[in-house]
């Protein structure tokens, strides 16, 4: 399968306002030289802590925020250098599902209206009757059955899970090739989360829609991208990337190892008898003053003086996955 999208050296730097004393205006490097490939019809899970740049990456992919460096290629064409026509096509083919389904839906519009407007406006269906039939079919395809019952409902009358289903129905209504889902289940009741993940899986399998699943939760990433890819981000950089299964079987980057150790196992005996976190420092550094060299070095148990604080490690293949660590091979031994 070829690449649907190629992210090449993408950086995003935000300039902050000057402070009152007149010191230099700080910059936030939300993304630094990220390289990532999204194969057609695949699921790529992007994981990392808050502030690691995963949401910024999602926004760059859907065309909401132009990167300050690098390119995003869609079918070989530069997303931010496309003709108007092509960009309009792109907007249809790449959709987004947000974390907060309540904020993503217009509170004054019924579900039926919310879904029918884009269909009619973009000329996908003609006439109100056809639009209505199509909306019902869409609602039923995301598990809101019978669809008629949901047409007249407003967002506040639905549960979090149902609203997220409406958002997914809206996303698939334009037959996209890619959906970027940014923490789609964190606002959903725990007992319904799994059903939303299952729905996304089946949309991927049955309709061939690729997903970029952005999350901080490795367990749900494993669930949805079991056959797909895993991208681990830390302070704006991609630190590990590969097939999810092989990355989790043999995590190489010391940050990913710490992350995996920290995920509580749903078993009291396992959760209480696990080794201490392999980390030197608990706290993330300030995003406006990133550490030199490898940005993980102040917290890293493997960091070696003279190398890690000076040289930025590049992503390179170690075994089956790409890792950005000077000592990725050593991490394998320890």
């Amino acid at each position: 399968m070829g690449a649907l999208m190629t992210i090449e050296n993408v950086s995003m730097t935000f300039q902050m306002k000057k402070n009152l004393i007149g010191g230099p205006a700080p910059q936030v490097h939300a993304l630094s030289e990220v390289n990532l490939e999204i194969p057609q019809g695949s699921i790529v899970a992007v994981v990392g802590e808050s502030g690691c740049g995963k949401t910024t990456l999602g926004k760059a992919i859907v065309g909401l925020q132009k990167p300050t460096g690098g390119r995003i290629l869609y079918d070989g064409e530069d997303l931010y250098n496309m003709s108007g026509d092509h960009f309009a096509q792109y907007r249809k083919q790449v959709q987004m599902v947000m974390q907060d389904s309540f904020a993503a839906l217009n509170p004054m519009r019924s579900v039926g209206q919310a879904l029918a407007v884009p269909l009619q406006k973009l000329g996908i269906v003609k006439g109100r009757k056809a639009a209505r039939d199509r909306v019902i079919a869409l609602l039923e395809s995301v598990g809101l059955v019978p669809g008629e019952q949901f047409l007249a409902k407003y967002p506040h009358q639905l549960s979090g899970g149902q609203r997220q289903r409406v958002c997914l129905a809206r996303a698939i209504s334009l037959s996209p090739r890619l959906i970027v889902a940014d923490e789609p289940v964190s606002g959903v009741d725990v007992s319904s989360r799994l059903s939303i993940l299952k729905l996304m899986s089946s949309l991927n399998k049955e309709l061939g829609i690729a997903f970029v699943y952005i999350t901080h939760d490795l367990s749900t990433a494993r669930y949805i991208a079991g056959q797909g890819k895993l991208a681990v981000m830390y302070l704006g950089r991609l630190v590990e990337f590969g097939d999810l299964q092989s990355v989790l079987d043999r995590p190489r980057h010391p940050y990913l190892r710490a992350l995996l150790t920290a995920v509580p196992a749903p078993d009291p005996d396992l959760a209480r008898n696990r080794p201490p976190l392999p980390l030197k420092d608990l706290d993330l550094p300030d995003a406006t003053r990133l550490p030199s060299g490898c940005s993980f070095h102040p917290r890293c148990p493997l960091a070696a003086a003279g190398r890690c604080e000076q040289e930025v490690p590049q992503l390179h293949m170690v075994g089956a996955s790409a890792v950005a660590c000077h000592f990725a091979d050593m991490a394998d031994i320890s």
């Binding site: 319904s192 799994l194 079991g226 196992a265």
Partner: peptide, 22 residues
């Protein structure tokens, strides 16, 4: 609730959600 929690330790083949909403 316990069965519907995805785990990092397993393939999650047997997990299933609770039907309906609160």
């Amino acid at each position: 609730l316990i069965e519907s929690t995805p785990s990092l330790l397993s393939n999650n083949e047997e997990i299933s959600e609770i039907d309906g909403t609160p």
